[in-house]
Design a protein around this nucleic acid. Structure first.
Lengths: 224, 224
DNA sequence: TATTTTTCTTACAACAACTGTAAGTGGCAT
DNA sequence: ATGCCACTTACAGTTGTTGTAAGAAAAATA
């Protein structure tokens, strides 16, 4: 069953949204601790998130922006204000759709289904900055062109993207790629990072995989 | 430059839309012959199509539906009526977004960019019925699961999907897959079709690739 | 039913791509 | 200046993909 996170401070509206989703067969749940909303969303990894932009504390727009930088699930923005600039702002932040309160259940569900169908059809992807990686084929899409990575290189990049923008220790990489913390040969990682870098350079992504001496590897990108 | 097709019967609105797109750096053009709109769209293969649903003759909804069955470009529905049922209908037909007239240029461009970004990010795909194929990796997505095809099998399926629901002659397949009409060994096609079928069966797609004795192969699907 | 044509299936060997090993070079830090 | 860490290139084993070959099954024709 598809899980949907509802981030909304108004109790009544939140429960109504959750109820609407549950009746339609989704596994909806509310997030009430807005300080930890981002963290919770990244841990839960729902199939979709509905996000009120008028949250107390951190702006919902900020939340949307920082989630979209590295999340793989779609986000529906919900707002009371119905101005064009709000809508443009939301879409500019990478939201997948924009709905105004009050919102008819049928409209909510229609938009939800459309977004989910689009995501399902393209298959799941891992996003980090402007990079988009298919975790099954290791096809990396960036700025209109793409690159097909070999399995090992793809796995390394996948971990780096999932953890972006964190530094990933070499032990973690060994665990994720070869299934063991205890790396027999330190060199094999370097060989594959080297190959990965050479391939990324073709896309104009030279210098993106950086080594932090004694710590591990990071993805480093300026652009969104 | 990205090409945008505008299908709208009102001259003024059409020119205004085209002008808005051109000013934003798109290569927009109008389609006026609505009888041939579908055919023209399939030939032109624009990067996006804006479609008025209140066209003379064939309903815009019908047009959207039949295009979406086998097109790979996004469609924006434009309508004068602003009822919920119109919107639900449009989204149900597979439209990528829904806008009401009159539409502010900024909103139009924002929605356009969002849809194009989504398509660019997922990379181009070939659609036929409920099947979605990545023509670079030959990853086939269907109903929540997926399958990675080998190159030759993928090429065959790609041609069948591109031509869906037409029957494809064996000569065409040889031309597209091996680059020659004159097939040295008739058998190699059968071998690969056989392998393709076996793989498709895993996804529950047994019987989808059909042979028409003496003519060629077709995709046959009931569902959307 | 017998015969011919077309299509389908399985096994096998050549080939290409990917992976890890090995060995040596380069760069950073104390 | 020395030692450690990171990088690069070449090579060989392994894996998966491709086309060939040969025979079985199915459909049309007589």
């Amino acid at each position: 069953m598809i899980r949907i996170a509802v981030v909304e401070d108004d109790v009544y509206l939140r429960e109504e949204l959750i109820h609407t989703f549950r009746k339609a067969g989704y596994d909806a749940f509310g997030i009430t601790c807005f300080q930890r909303a981002e963290q919770e969303l990244m841990e839960e990894k729902p199939g979709l998130a509905v996000l009120d932009v008028n949250l107390p504390g951190k702006s919902g727009y900020e939340l949307c922006k920082s989630i979209k930088k590295r999340c793989a699930f779609p986000i529906l923005i919900l707002t009371a204000r119905d101005t064009l600039s709000d809508e443009l702002m939301a879409l500019g932040l990478g939201a997948d759709d924009f709905l105004t309160k009050p919102c008819h259940p049928d409209r909510l569900l229609a938009r939800t289904e459309r977004v989910l169908a689009a995501y399902a059809r393209m298959g799941r992807r891992i996003l980090a900055g402007a990079l988009s990686l298919d975790p099954d084929t290791y096809k990396l899409v960036y700025g209109g062109s793409f690159l097909l990575l070999a399995e090992t290189e793809g796995k390394i990049l996948k971990v780096l993207m999932e953890q972006y923008p964190r530094i990933v220790e070499k032990g973690e990489l060994f665990a994720a790629v070869w299934g063991t913390e205890k790396f027999v040969d330190e060199n094999i990682l370097q060989v594959n990072v080297s190959r990965l870098r050479k391939n990324l350079a073709v896309l104009g992504l030279a210098g993106v995989v950086r080594n932090i001496r004694g710590q591990g590897y990071v993805l480093e990108m300026e652009e969104l």
